[in-house]
């Protein structure tokens, strides 16, 4: 047995079953929340905003809102997926099973990515009901969607492994990722920021993700799309390296 495919499939299916059990929380809530953003920012306020970078404001915020959901849901799904067995004690089974680190991550992160991508596409479909959407580079859009969901799911997995309480699972998404997303150009172009703030904004990794994702929709970006792809790929590799270290040392998983 060089690859435990049954093991990966079991973890994946277990995680997907959990999402189906909590369908309202997993899908309905984020879609409803995002719809509210479209109503408030897109239709109500956006009507007075005119266009940003030649794009209708309601349509301009779509990529940013999808990214916001992708970040928080990937983080939450993956961190909860691995933290919950730690919390209930059922982690013993995973640790005693003939599954490798790679297979464990593939099962948990694979399920989290699936859920996030499905959610991202659902929000996209919802958005198309409110604003006129045109995707110029659909393949790049899908690539960003997958790469971002995977990176943040890996990041979530790390949080889940390190967390000692449910509160700690919430801290990074709420206190770090959400502010960075709001400040990262989800609702505006960073070109609209005054002088020094624009420079500071470039230190925010989320800027690159939203900018690249928006480029795949409208062909306009705050930073070159190549830099965006490099940035997200870099984050992806950093998360992989941390997970490799966690399993190599057994950190927070084994005594």
């Amino acid at each position: 047995m060089s690859f435990n495919g049954h093991g990966v499939w079991s973890i994946y299916r277990f995680e997907m079953a959990r999402a189906l059990r909590t369908l309202v929380q997993s899908l309905v809530t984020p879609v409803l929340t995002t719809s509210l953003y479209f109503v408030v920012f897109g239709s109500a306020i956006g009507g007075r905003m005119g266009e940003v970078e030649g794009v209708n404001y309601g349509a301009f915020i779509v990529p940013g809102l999808i990214m916001l959901s992708l970040f928080t849901e990937s983080l939450f799904n993956a961190s909860f997926g691995i933290y919950f067995p730690k919390f209930t004690g059922t982690i013993y089974e995973l640790l005693s099973a003939p599954v490798s680190a790679f297979e464990t991550v593939l099962g948990y992160v694979g399920a989290a990515v699936t859920k996030s991508v499905v959610l991202g596409l659902l929000i996209l479909a919802t958005a198309s009901l409110f604003v006129p959407l045109h995707i110029q580079h659909p393949l790049v859009m899908i690539a960003f969607l997958l790469l971002t969901a995977t990176t943040f799911s890996l990041f979530g997995f790390i949080i889940g492994v390190c967390a000692n309480s449910f509160e700690q699972i919430q801290v990074i998404p709420m206190l770090v990722v959400t502010p960075l997303t709001f400040l990262g150009g989800a609702f505006y172009s960073i070109d609209m920021l005054p002088g020094v703030w624009k420079t500071i904004a470039l230190f925010n990794p989320v800027v690159y993700l939203i900018s690249g994702f928006r480029w795949s929709f409208y062909g306009t970006a705050d930073v070159a799309v190549g830099i965006s792809l490099t940035a997200i790929s870099g984050c992806f590799l950093v998360c992989l390296a941390i997970i490799w270290w966690i399993f190599a040392t057994g950190y927070r998983l084994k005594k």
């Binding site: 047995m1 435990n4 049954h6 093991g7 499939w9 079991s10 973890i11 299916r13 277990f14 079953a17 959990r18 059990r21 209930t88 004690g89 059922t90 013993y92 089974e93 995973l94 099973a97 003939p98 599954v99």
Partner: peptide
């Protein structure tokens, strides 16, 4: 330590798969 929300059948099926069978 059990998965409270799972059914008995799904939890034993999970265990079997996890061990590569």
């Amino acid at each position: 330590a059990t998965d409270a929300f799972e059914s008995v059948w799904s939890t034993v099926s999970f265990s079997r798969g996890l061990f590569g069978r």
